[in-house]
Design a protein around this nucleic acid. Structure first.
Lengths: 221, 221
DNA sequence: AATTGCATTAACAATTTGATAATACCTTTA
DNA sequence: TAAAGGTATTATCAAATTGTTAATGCAATT
């Protein structure tokens, strides 16, 4: 289920968009100004952000600029909402890394078709990626980025981290892990997992993989 | 999505062109003088460059001349914008390697039809080419240019490099590579890929093809 | 027929990765 | 607090993977 964050200072717009997006099965969060939008984006990690250009405090363009600096939002979709009048905004918006823009007044149908088509466009890429803010795993590139640093993992390490990160907070039993990564054919000892976990912790600098004694491991935060 | 760079010293023109091009789905960058145009061209690697002839500092003709010297812009489309008055410019422009010219004042419809038809005209060629700045692969000529030097590759080497370079950063599994280049019928030994990779690395002087152990190869940078 | 160039394979070296065991450590519980 | 059960750490060895070079066979060209 895709997550969408909407930022606008007009409650009406938030309501309309939220209603329509939820009707199509999206998970929606809202923010009524730029600062809140940035905060919520960081915690909610949406797949799409819809930003009003004109907001008190930080404009949508500024918000976009801030977010695009962060690696976690490098590939997040961003759509601008702009009033008919300020058409230079469109220009600046796309330059700064927006994926599309919408003119007010908004036609829900137009919005939904844009949103859907954007998601269709990138659906494959998104499926391949795991984006947890601090941690970005790209299955296509076999690359891992943690706290803004590229980390190179060996194959098993990569698979193990991918597995754990694919469902944050879920505890994976040792058996589950063995089945998923080693398969049912191969039989390896219990310490093997520990050793790989350790290597990951080492490379990622001790964090976020928690041990649940007597049960297994989970990825958190 | 095609990329277009516009260079003009009049902000109005930039805005109008940008608006119209983006409305048709092009990705647009702008520059308000010749020097910036050259810089942006190098980083943005547009498919089309629209150059105003009369610009302070470097004229569009000069910009075109500079860019055409660079192998990365050998096949980039270039359109000149010229004021009605100086019609000698057209001549010089086309001589120096422009693909078309437009007289000011600009009619957006005329522009768009020119742009679209230019892209249609060369769409096939462009698809056949890979342009990564330092590396230029021309599938039609079977030619490879890397760091400003022509490199002659054998058939399999060429195909392998083309494949990897077609999606930079993506890791191609050994199986994928075998399927793409050798097909499913033929069966070749395991070292075959390695040997070809080695030859490419040798000819390209050790760079940009990275090994991902246990997985495959990828092209990067 | 000889030459040349390419694709493939074979053989071996070098490297990286994975698994295990031994040991140290921690936590819980009796 | 000592014992037990589980986990972390480390070193070590085995295995898998890749790199390199040379040799072979084939096909096109001269």
């Amino acid at each position: 289920m895709k997550k969408v964050l909407i930022a606008d200072d007009e409650q009406d717009i938030l309501d309309i968009l939220k209603f329509n997006l939820e009707a199509e099965g999206y998970m929606v969060e809202t923010a009524n100004n730029g600062v809140v939008a940035i905060e919520k984006a960081k915690s909610f990690l949406p797949d799409l952000i819809i930003l009003d250009v004109m907001m008190p405090g930080k404009t949508g363009i500024e918000v976009c600029g801030v977010l695009r600096m962060l690696p976690a939002f490098k590939s997040t979709l961003i759509i601008f909402l702009t009033a008919m009048s300020d058409d230079t905004a469109e220009v600046k918006g796309l330059e700064i890394g927006a994926d599309d823009y919408l003119k007010k007044p908004i036609r829900p149908k137009v919005l939904m078709s844009k949103v859907n088509s954007l998601f269709r466009r990138v659906s494959k890429e998104i499926d391949h990626n795991i984006n947890l803010g601090e941690l970005i795993i790209n299955r296509e590139n076999f690359s891992v980025r943690y706290k803004n640093e590229d980390i190179s993992l060996a194959r098993k390490e990569f698979e193990l981290l991918s597995l754990l990160a694919s469902k944050p907070s879920k505890v994976f039993l040792r058996n589950e892990i063995l089945n998923q990564i080693w398969g049912t054919e191969v039989i390896v000892g219990d310490r093997t997992i520990d050793v790989h976990i350790r290597k990951i912790r080492q490379k990622l600098n001790l964090d976020c993989i928690k041990t649940v004694k007597g049960v297994g491991y989970k990825f958190e935060l």
